[in-house]
Write a protein that binds this DNA or RNA. Structure first.
Lengths: 208, 208
DNA sequence: TTGTCATCTGTCACCGTCTGACATAAATTA
DNA sequence: TAATTTATGTCAGACGGTGACAGATGACAA
């Protein structure tokens, strides 16, 4: 019943072992105080192998949140074309949160752990922001495609930039510890989206 | 007439020498291909001394833009209390651009050079965003102080986050090459601020 | 089962960033 | 000029990250 071969399963196992080992060590000793050698030793692989799975040290903590960005992009592409950019982005984000709630428990726990760590570690936070900005370009491209405008057009940039700003503010002071607290994510999201709606003029994100 | 002593002047000179050497080398060879040793050699100091002036390699390229952030904060504090947050932030930014136009020519040239480099180098751009986010906290604190609310309050976060998003979009595709093109900055700023005003409801950034 | 092939892994050597410690040289002050 | 700061150079080293090569291991066909 296991689609992937032994080799592939082994790879996934060491990948998760590295992530878990890193997350634990980071939580106990702090990010900077933990060396790649320690992570590799804890996961029972050579230091060189670590870098075959993750390009940089922060990648190991950021890989899960980055996957989340990927999901957001996928959900955005799935939204109907009638929805204006900001609405589509909002609904895509709602779908991501829902997906997180319905996902595997261990996976959710890992994600929360990683998020907590990233939020409280400046170096990791910086890396996270960097990847978010890279992804922002792809969000802009997708919005431009939906709206039938050029990616150089100001509106997609403006809409996406505003949306990420809103989302960032919404989640920055929301720290669910366990998977039980997860609905807090959804509530917080609705709260901040409501505030955004109160602040923005109707139809601002679509040309008339 | 020179207020600071010889020692202080010498320090400023090597500091500028390091910045100029770095900016030149970065422009010619690229950021990653340039080593700290090369920069130090070009500025005629030991590599160790480089790190006494700049904590990291990217610091040397980012120090000027970071100074700009400092100016923004100072100008914000100088705005009258009647101005709502977003207006005060806008006017503070206008003041920064004006200050840049009226400043020393060589200084302006350096700033433009650094900005161009940061914009086109992912690693530097990431560092730039990181520092901007650190500064964002101070902007939030200042807005909260002006409005007499807690820094934990959602509104200062929201207002500052929206403003930086707007500013970022406005400047991202504006690349004045020489000091002559500098008015383009101001025009671009007015353009994006007008778009923001069209998109936001009047009075959104202040409690009623 | 066996042998071939592709792929993953460990070892080694290396470069570049960044830091602590110590000695030296230069500027400041008396 | 002598004494005291303070900046700088030299040195050694930790850590992140990479290329190259060899050996181990799973995939696959005969």
């Amino acid at each position: 019943m296991s689609q992937p071969g032994l080799r592939e399963r082994k790879k996934q196992r060491t990948r998760l072992a590295l992530i878990d080992a890193a997350l634990d060590l980071f939580a106990v000793q702090g990010y900077e105080a933990t060396t790649v050698d320690q992570i590799a030793a804890a996961a029972d692989v050579s230091p060189r192998t670590f870098f075959r799975y993750f390009a940089t040290k922060d990648d190991v903590a950021l890989s899960l949140p980055v996957d989340g960005q990927e999901v957001l992009l996928r959900e955005l592409a799935a939204r109907p074309a009638e929805e204006p950019p900001f609405v589509a982005l909002s609904n895509a984000m709602r779908a991501v949160v829902t997906e997180l709630q319905e996902g595997d428990l261990a996976e959710t726990r890992r994600f929360l752990k990683a998020r907590e760590l990233v939020e409280s570690t400046p170096a990791l936070f910086a890396g996270s922001v960097r990847r978010m900005m890279e992804n922002e370009q792809r969000l802009i491209a997708e919005v431009a495609r939906r709206e039938g405008t050029s990616p150089d057009d100001l509106l997609p940039h403006f809409a996406v930039s505003l949306f990420t700003a809103v989302a960032r503010v919404g989640f920055e002071s929301c720290h669910p510890q366990s998977a039980q607290d997860l609905p807090a994510f959804g509530e917080r999201l609705e709260q901040i989206l409501a505030l955004a709606e109160r602040s923005l003029r109707p139809g601002w994100d679509r040309l008339r």
